[in-house]
């Protein structure tokens, strides 16, 4: 996983609620056995017209948002399916940060695991950032994870909260499986206790 420290980039405004993961990446693109290559299908139904050509009205088909690294949206981003293909598609397109008033829980977790930082900020701040993102090509938003601030194009800083453990993993690009395996003895111990206290729990021979 790539580290996330600071990011300065173009933010794409998507002033919508309930952007579900079917919208981020429709089910017919989940038939891949790889993590990469999904960026071309990101927001497929919004991004392409029936004949397969680009929909000029969709934000990511417009300059400067074709190179957006940040998305600003409204409530309940990432609701619905648990598909990690959603953050994979976002990452493959180049998105490293999503800012919204709140997120669906599974998507929120999945993002961190892929080096994408989801930031919760109040609706009023998201509205300001949406306005900022419409300022045009030179308007950049900076996200500084270490200091936990979003810097608006006018230089104003907005503080955000992030779980310290997730922050640590993101800043250092750490794989959380490796972190958990360091607790291998505790897991062994738990399993022994579990076997004694609930011997009825079924196991299946392969």
């Amino acid at each position: 996983m790539d580290k996330f420290t600071t990011l300065t980039g173009v933010a794409a405004p998507m002033p919508m609620q309930n952007i579900d993961t079917d919208k981020v990446i429709p089910a017919r693109f989940l038939k891949t056995i790889k993590r990469t290559g999904l960026g071309v299908h990101l927001f497929d139904a919004l991004r392409y017209l029936k004949d397969g050509s680009e929909n000029p009205d969709f934000v990511l088909n417009q300059e400067p948002y074709r190179k957006a690294e940040i998305i600003v949206a409204y409530e309940n981003f990432g609701c619905g399916s648990s598909r990690e293909h959603a953050p994979w598609a976002l990452l493959d397109f180049g998105i490293r940060c999503i800012i919204a008033p709140d997120f669906a829980d599974i998507f929120f977790n999945n993002s961190f695991k892929n080096g994408i930082l989801p930031i919760r900020l109040p609706r009023a701040v998201c509205e300001q950032l949406i306005d900022d993102s419409k300022l045009g090509g030179n308007a950049r938003i900076t996200v500084d994870l270490e200091r936990q601030v979003v810097v608006r194009p006018n230089g104003e800083e907005v503080h955000f909260e992030v779980d310290p453990f997730r922050k640590h993993l993101l800043l250092n690009g750490l794989d959380d499986i490796g972190q958990t395996l360091r607790h291998g003895k505790a897991i062994d111990g738990y399993e022994t206790g579990r076997q004694q206290s609930q011997p009825w729990l079924p196991t299946i021979a392969a």
Binding site: R35, S82, R83, E84, P87, I106, N109, N110, K113, N114, D176, I177, T180, L181, I187, E191
Partner: peptide, 14 residues
């Protein structure tokens, strides 16, 4: 429900 990274985490660590 969990994402695929978490699926891998459960596979490796239960």
């Amino acid at each position: 429900g969990i994402g695929t990274s978490e699926v891998e985490h459960v596979m490796a660590t239960q």
